[in-house]
């Protein structure tokens, strides 16, 4: 399986993601530049963390209009697995591929801590490898990770099982402790925590490994 990791101007976790996928998990992975118009036959796409386009205007707002995002939207609509991490989550929300939006942390502080998450839906492309209700420790590092959605959107994503991860201890004021959501089909997932920083035993936690491995199961089932 070949993974494509998008690289926008201002991304900064794209190489960590490549390292996690290739050196730790043993997949093929390649960078895809923001100006690319195709996804080079990749089987799964990651939008990494960072500060694409300097976070100008709103986090993720400008990256959404990169040429590569048209290809990502088509890929997502045809059922391809797409993962947005941190800034990548913000980009997917701005692009309308995921519901809601991310705003400044309620406490105004940049939070950089290990977060304990509960897996609320283990049927998505990126959570099949977890037990239902499993807990995973995955680090967060963000200033704008407070998830918001209006009441009707919140009710809708609850009804359709689109809340994928919740914080056990809310670090940023996110509504309903939401750490990650998915689209209706479960092939597009976004989360603020960084699973790519939770795969290598050298750095302590490996709870992020099942997230990436889930895609193998998803592809087999497809």
């Amino acid at each position: 399986m070949k993974w494509g990791v998008l690289h926008f101007p201002g991304s900064n976790d794209e190489r960590d993601t490549i390292y996690a996928l290739e050196s730790v998990l043993g997949y093929h992975a390649r960078l895809l530049w923001h100006g690319d118009r195709n996804l080079a036959d990749c089987d799964a796409i990651v939008l990494p963390g960072g500060f694409s386009y300097g976070d100008y205007l709103r986090c993720g707002a400008l990256a959404r209009f990169s040429p590569v995002m048209e290809a990502v939207a088509d890929f997502a609509k045809s059922g391809g697995p797409v993962l947005g991490i941190c800034n990548g989550f913000q980009v997917l929300c701005e692009a309308g591929l995921l519901p809601g939006a991310l705003v400044q942390n309620r406490g105004l502080k940049f939070r950089c801590v290990p977060a304990t998450l509960t897996v609320e839906n283990n049927t998505t492309a990126f959570t099949l490898g977890y037990e239902d209700g499993a807990q995973a420790v995955i680090p967060i590092k963000h200033g704008e990770g407070c998830y918001v959605a209006d009441q009707s959107t919140l009710a809708e994503i609850q009804d359709h099982g689109q809340i994928v991860f919740r914080y056990t201890s809310n670090p940023n004021g996110s509504i309903d402790d939401i750490a990650g959501v998915c689209n209706r089909e479960g092939n597009v997932v976004g989360l603020m925590p960084h699973p790519e920083h939770a795969v290598d035993p050298l750095t302590g936690v490996t709870d992020g490994q099942p997230l990436f491995r889930s895609v193998d199961q998803w592809k087999q089932a497809a």
Partner: peptide
């Protein structure tokens, strides 16, 4: 401006 229902922590500060 942020919608009325959205908490504006900068505004609060």
């Amino acid at each position: 401006v942020p919608k009325p229902a959205i908490l504006d922590p900068q505004g609060k500060a």
